[in-house]
Amino acid sequence: MKYEYMKESEQMLQYFQFPKFLLKLRISQTAKFLYMILYDRARISRKNSWIDKYGNVYLIFPIEELSVQIDKCKSSVKTALKELDDVGLLVRRSGGFSKPNHLYVKIPSDEIGLQTVDDKAV
């Protein structure tokens, strides 16, 4: 891969948002990285109106795809998902018989309302 200097006129690269509160949590780097990926996907789900009957945004992201996305084995992904479950940042609910689980990314209460985002404007 070839790299170049950033110029004033260059367009921004695509990037993920890394929430600052994750720095304070005692979870693995894999779990932090996975949260960042899931948070990004949840924002896309919100844009696409993947909302349950309670008004909560959910996403579907199979473990195999997560494994490829973060370049980790499936067991590492499962361990990181459990870590996120254990600290309360992720809820997994059955999507129904023979359907994938719905994943709900949670946000700490003190982070909500700090900055409103209009994803539809993007």
Results as ranks from 00 to 15, higher is better:
A31T: 03
V105T: 08
L59K: 01
V68W: 04
V57S: 14
Y5L: 06
I51P: 13
V77F: 07
I112G: 07
L59Q: 09
R26N: 12
V117L: 15
R46K: 12
V68M: 02
E10C: 04
K7R: 09
S76V: 08
F61G: 04
Y58D: 02
V105I: 13
P62E: 04
P108F: 10
D71P: 00
V122P: 00
E4N: 02
E4C: 00
H102L: 08
L90Y: 07
K47M: 06
D52A: 07
Q29L: 06
Y3H: 08
Y35Q: 02
Q69N: 09
F18C: 04
D40R: 11
T30A: 12
Y54F: 15
L13T: 00
V122S: 04
S9K: 13
V77D: 07
S45H: 06
I112H: 12
M6H: 01
S45P: 01
N101H: 06
V68S: 11
D40I: 00
K32C: 01
Y35P: 04
E65A: 05
A121C: 10
K82I: 12
I44T: 07
Y5C: 04
V68R: 07
L22K: 04
F18V: 10
G95L: 00
L25F: 05
I27N: 03
I60Y: 02
M36V: 15
R43K: 10
Y104W: 03
N56H: 13
R41Y: 08
T79Q: 12
S45F: 01
L90W: 05
D52P: 07
D86R: 15
E111T: 07
D86H: 13
I27Y: 02
P100S: 00
E8H: 03
K2P: 03
A42D: 09
T79F: 15
F61K: 09
L81H: 09
Q17K: 06
D71Y: 09
K99I: 00
G88L: 15
S98F: 12
V117G: 13
S9Y: 11
F33C: 02
Q11I: 07
N56C: 08
E10R: 05
L38V: 03
K47P: 02
E111F: 14
D110T: 14
V77Y: 01
H102D: 00
L23A: 03
A80D: 07
Q115G: 14
L66Q: 12
E64M: 12
R46C: 07
E111L: 12
S76H: 15
V77K: 00
K2G: 08
Q17P: 01
K24N: 08
R93F: 08
L59P: 01
L66M: 13
S109C: 12
S75H: 11
L22S: 01
I37K: 09
Q29G: 06
M12D: 00
S94D: 01
K82W: 04
W50Q: 12
P62V: 06
C73N: 11
F21A: 00
L103M: 14
S109I: 13
E111Y: 14
S49V: 11
P62M: 06
S67Q: 10
